[in-house]
Design a binder for these strands. Structure first.
Length: 586
RNA sequence: GCGCCCGUAGCUCAAUCGGAUAGAGCAACGGCCUUCUAAGCCGUAGGUUGCGGGUUCGAUUCCUGCCGGGCGUACCA
């Protein structure tokens, strides 16, 4: 419809240029938008306002000239000039009503673009370090990433969802050492657990499993383990030095094979827990990408070689640096330390090279807001390697602050006193979790109120929307129980009877769903769809309250029930995209 | 210090890539159940969009300077 109106305006503009009203070289950019206020019609164009200056004409007069030159259309009911020079367009009712038939005929597919019609995109999200269970902060990234992925898929994009597993580096070594120390405790040793170690209960579980599987093959006495280890912080030492020394001791005593057994026991257990957790949250991945694999496959070396060839690496004090300042970064970055160890950033460069080599049209990274400092340097590396950095899209997700009533819940992974995503899901339910997380713009800070998410009342927007869906189902059940009949074909034929404000508003709202979905997807903004569903539910509740559907007048009854089922279809489609169930009864 | 994000009703947040009178929900106040689910609906009130300039027909939106908050500024991952 927008396109149709734009074509009409283009035609009118051509006429005005031909008859000399407008200069031949004028720049025209026709924009047709939805009106915010229905007293302004269904669609509006600001074309007369934008052309007023270059054409040196009064905008309202120009608008009138355009209307005089506008070709006749069978779809428009009327046009008018309003305000400073807007042209408002009113659709004929039967044109607007066609959306109901379109929705019922397409059903679940309504609003979706044909699969794989809009390119191929990778979405990487969550990618939390596998050092412990996911906590509520990760939940927002999970819900956001999953929803954005599903929305893109609905927009016709072929989506590959990926989790980058940070299974390399010091934190993982701290984890392995923590597991081993608990294993030793489990075998009867007693000592002060390092203040910088992982103290969660899950470490005990992993250690117990390890002992059950391997017996005491990894056992050493605490006297040997702690001999000559620098003091921990509570004893007046440095906790970092302390834990690093323990890591080295662990490696030395266990050897490569033994250490690997402990290491992978921790990694495998936590990773499978994360997988299970996300699966339960309705979040699926096509790919779990291991950071360690980048070293094994040689991707890290080849990425560094690539930068070397292009002349962006230099050595200083034994370290190998990437000259990222050539691409707008604040300072250059180390990619390989003097001791030969490559840095995390080097893995990141290799990983992004790997992503780009896989040929996606776009690569979307969903990162926690604390990673925003990395955007510049990663894009710098991509550009240096000869890739187009514009193909990398980074969306930052701000942290969600959890409240229990008025009280703020504190979180800390290391101390083990955090609230896990799993606990949150069990407490408030998956539907409320998924919905609450995406109901705000991702870059907005967000307060997640547990009490509100749990409440089964109208305060809780998710119940409100689900209830609208259930209400339509309820009407159909009543229809069955009573002696009423319902004929969808007759309903569609009688949509012209729906002339109340409530009904016209509902139909208008339904007509906007495809572009809401499209805009929500392409801008990575699920909250737009969430808000739309809230509004649609609101319109339906108002309608339901004002007019009875189960009435004697068969034509009107058929029309109203038919409209209601179209609303139900859109609610179901939208909720499914948000990862929320659409219950038939509540 | 520098960089990025944010600042909108008492609270939590919108505002369709510059549009018309800045909108919802909570909370407050007043109404609506003999009627398809009151898990709902209707109404009232609530604003100098942090502050000051600038750009133009028109600014919450773009530019600039302040104020306030968050994050970052690693040879950590």
């Amino acid at each position: 419809m927008k396109q149709h109106i734009a074509d009409l305006i283009d035609s009118a503009l051509a006429t005005l240029i031909a008859n000399g009203t407008l200069p031949a070289d004028i720049q025209t950019n026709v924009m047709v938008e939805n009106t915010r206020d229905k007293t302004h019609g269904d669609f509006a164009s600001n074309i007369a306002l934008t052309l007023a200056k270059p054409a040196r004409q009064n905008p309202r007069q120009l608008a009138q000239a355009l209307l005089d030159a506008l070709p006749a259309s069978t779809q428009l009911a009327k046009t008018e000039i309003a305000g400073p020079g807007f042209i408002n367009f009113y659709m004929k009712a039967d044109v607007a009503n066609q959306v109901v038939a379109a929705i019922l005929s397409a059903g679940h597919e309504y609003g979706r673009q044909p699969a794989n019609s809009a390119g191929r995109v990778q979405v990487e999200f969550v990618s939390a370090n596998p050092t412990g269970p996911l906590h509520v902060g990760h939940g927002r990234g999970a819900a956001y990433g999953a929803t954005v992925s599903d929305l893109l898929e609905a927009a016709g994009v072929q989506v590959e969802r990926e989790y980058y597993v940070n299974d390399a580096g010091r934190q993982m070594n701290i984890l392995a050492t923590s597991v081993w120390l608990r294993y030793l405790e489990n075998g009867g040793e007693s000592f002060a657990f390092p203040s910088n170690g992982y103290k969660g209960a899950y470490i005990h579980d992993i250690a117990a499993d390890l002992r059950a599987r391997l017996g005491d093959t990894l056992h050493h006495s605490s006297a040997i383990v702690f001999s000559d280890i620098p003091a921990d912080e509570p004893a007046g030492g440095d906790k970092e030095v302390h834990i690093d020394a323990l890591i080295e001791r662990c490696r030395a005593l266990l050897g490569d094979d033994g250490y690997e057994q402990v290491f992978s026991a921790g990694l495998d257990s936590i990773l499978s827990d994360i997988r299970d957790d996300l699966g339960g949250f309705g979040v699926q991945y096509q790919q779990w990408f291991s950071e360690r694999s980048l070293t094994h496959t040689g991707d890290v070396d080849s990425a560094l070689n690539k930068l070397q060839e292009k002349g962006y690496l230099f050595e200083e004090e034994g370290n190998l640096w990437f000259r990222s300042t050539d691409f707008g970064d604040d300072k250059d970055r180390v990619v390989r330390r003097a001791n030969g160890q490559t840095t995390y950033f080097a893995s990141d460069i290799a990983y992004h090279m790997n992503k780009f080599e896989r040929g996606f049209d776009k690569v979307v990274n969903i990162w926690g807001a604390d990673h925003h400092g990395y955007i510049t340097r990663v894009k710098a590396a991509l550009e240096a390697m000869g890739y187009d950095p514009e193909r990398l899209v980074v969306r930052l997700v701000q942290f969600a602050i959890l409240y229990r009533g008025q009280e703020r819940v504190q979180m800390s992974t290391r101390s083990g006193s955090f609230v896990t995503l799993r606990e949150l899901r069990e407490e408030v339910g998956n539907d409320a979790c998924r919905f609450f997380y995406v109901t705000r713009k991702s870059e907005q800070h967000m307060d997640f109120d547990l009490e509100l998410a749990k409440s089964e009342s109208k305060d809780n927007p998710i119940y409100y929307i689900q209830y609208a869906h259930a209400r339509v189902c309820s009407v159909l059940r009543k229809l069955d129980e009573a002696s009423w009949s319902w004929d969808q074909a007759a309903g569609l034929a009688n949509l012209g009877l729906l002339d109340t404000e409530h009904e016209k508003d509902l139909i208008t709202k339904l007509g906007k769903y495809p572009e809401v979905l499209q805009g929500s997807a392409l801008n990575y903004e699920p909250h737009v769809l969430a808000n739309y569903l809230r509004e649609l539910a609101n319109d339906f509740h108002s309608y339901y309250n004002a007019h009875k559907m189960l009435i004697d007048d068969a034509d009107l009854r058929n029309a109203r029930v038919t409209l209601s089922t179209a609303v139900r279809q859109i609610l179901a489609n939208g909720l499914q995209l948000l990862g929320v169930s659409a219950p038939e009864q509540m």
